[in-house]
């Protein structure tokens, strides 16, 4: 059961196609297991359709349609895409959601479906990361974070945003408890201290769009080492 969903403005930006690559990836991974948010995206896409329906017309070349017919006749020899149907079922019983962990398809394409096989790098006591090869915009980074049980992230504030999707285990902060499938959009100026709150590791998919700024003096000293 998912308790933390995407905000309206994230849904709208995803539908518009205007999120950065990293944010769009994290959002898509939530949509993959959240039919409620996927339905909201479909609603937001109605706006896109209405904008296209209402935009002014610009004349196209006379022969454009004929060129398209040539293209489709050529394409005729290729098979058409199949409906993805049942394989794309959005419920939590789908094969991508097993044993209390969730490996989104977009992520499985990059790392396979086994978190144990990921080449984790230790970035500090109790915290490991794997930076994903996502082509992202400047200052943006998409990574998997693995927090050991009881690990408390240093108290930090944000310059930019931090979008987090829980893939295994859970974490808690002032704003609530986040379990597998839940998403957190930590806004600019938000102040929080997430803690892995069960006996198991907490694995999250995280997109940050600016370096985090840690509050404490010690953690500020650690920051260049942790690199987050």
């Amino acid at each position: 059961m998912i308790h933390h969903h995407l905000s309206d403005e994230m849904i709208l930006a995803y539908a518009a196609g205007s999120l950065s690559a990293g944010q769009a990836m994290v959002v898509a991974c939530h949509l993959d297991i959240c039919p409620a948010c996927a339905a909201r995206v479909a609603e937001a896409e109605v706006i896109g359709g209405a904008l296209i329906a209402d935009v002014e017309e610009t004349a196209v070349s006379d022969d454009l349609f004929n060129q398209i017919l040539v293209d489709v006749d050529e394409a005729q020899s290729f098979p058409e895409p199949e409906r993805t149907g049942a394989s794309a079922s959005g419920d939590l019983s789908s094969s991508s959601y097993l044993d209390g962990r969730y490996v989104p398809r977009l992520l499985a394409n990059m790392i396979g479906d086994d978190f144990a096989a990921v080449r984790w790098r230790t970035v500090g006591p109790g915290i490991r990361q794997f930076v994903l090869p996502v082509p992202s915009s400047e200052g943006e980074k998409v990574r998997l974070l693995k927090l050991s049980p009881g690990f408390v992230t240093p108290d930090h504030s944000h310059h930019g945003s931090e979008l987090t999707l829980v893939l295994k285990g859970s974490f808690s902060d002032d704003t609530g408890r986040y379990r597998v499938g839940d998403i957190q959009d930590a806004e600019e100026d938000m102040h929080h201290q997430p803690m892995a709150d069960t006996e198991e590791d907490c694995i999250c998919l995280v997109c940050t769009d600016a370096p985090l700024e840690f509050k404490g003096v010690i953690t500020r000293l650690l920051q260049p080492i942790i690199g987050i």
């Binding site: 949509l31 039919p35 996927a38 339905a39 995206v41 479909a42 895409p81 409906r83 993805t84 149907g85 794309a88 079922s89 959005g90």
Partner: peptide, 10 residues
Amino acid sequence: DFFASKLVSD
């Protein structure tokens, strides 16, 4: 097609 097909089952 992905989300469209997913919503079909709704």
